[in-house]
Structures are given as structure tokens and as C-alpha cells.
């Protein structure tokens, strides 16, 4: 079981790097074109452990174009800002990987 989680962790990190690279170029394109329309939304990820929420918050902030503004651990609500309006799935693409890794 522990070894399985390590593999999930490696998978998570690889996907994270890929997402970061994509986000860097997307955000750079937004900056060049001037398509900046920041929004703030609340999302309720399906994660139970506080450490999962913390890691999800960090991954959101690590990908350029989205940052985590606030986190309510009791209600498990994240306040997230995105540089352009987008779907929730596009803001938290790594949630299923974190779920597999930690829960």
C-alpha cells in the first residue's frame, strides 16, 4: 500500500510539472494579448484531509494563472482567483491525483 502511494506521488509530480509548463505558456499568452480578466471563485474540492487541501492549495498557486486566496479547513472551501474565467475542472486539474495519493 505504501509503495502504491509512492507511485501515485511520482505520477502526481509528473502531471504537476506538465500542468505548470502548460500554465506558464497560457499565462504568458494572456499577458501578451492583454486578455486579463481576474475572477475570484469559491470551490469545494472533494478532499477530506487538511493535508490534501493544503497540497491542492499549493498546486493551484504553483501553476501560473491561478492562486489560492483563502482556505477554510472546517468547511473545506477554497477561495481561488484565476486570471481569466474558467471552469472548476480547469482550476483544480490535480484533485484526482491528490485523492489517489493521500486518501
Amino acid at each position: 500500500m505504501f509503495l502504491t502511494r509512492i507511485f501515485y506521488g511520482i505520477e502526481f509530480f509528473v502531471v504537476l510539472v506538465v500542468e505548470i509548463i502548460k500554465a506558464v505558456f497560457d499565462t504568458a499568452a494572456c499577458s501578451l494579448k492583454g486578455d486579463v480578466d481576474p475572477v475570484v471563485v469559491e470551490i469545494r474540492p472533494d478532499l477530506k484531509r487538511p493535508v490534501s487541501l493544503a497540497i491542492l492549495s499549493n498546486t493551484i498557486t504553483l501553476t501560473p494563472g491561478t492562486i489560492t486566496v483563502d482556505m477554510d479547513q472546517d468547511e473545506r472551501v477554497l477561495t481561488v482567483s484565476a486570471i481569466t474565467p474558467r471552469a472548476t475542472e480547469a482550476i483544480i486539474p490535480l484533485e484526482p491525483y491528490i485523492k489517489k495519493m493521500l486518501e
Binding site: I20, A23, V24, T27, A28, S31, V36, P38, V39, V40, T61, L62, T63, P64, G65, T66, I67, V69, S81, A82, I83
Partner: peptide, 19 residues
């Protein structure tokens, strides 16, 4: 005057962090 403009600038600075 643009709402949440500070957050937009922070998001753009994410590029600098990754570089």
C-alpha cells in the same frame, strides 16, 4: 479600478517564480 487586479498581477508573477 479593475477588481481583483492585484490577484492578476500575482498570477502573472507566477511565471517569474517558475522561470
Amino acid at each position: 479600478d479593475v477588481k481583483y487586479n492585484v490577484f492578476a498581477r500575482l498570477e502573472i508573477l507566477g511565471i517569474v517564480d517558475m522561470v
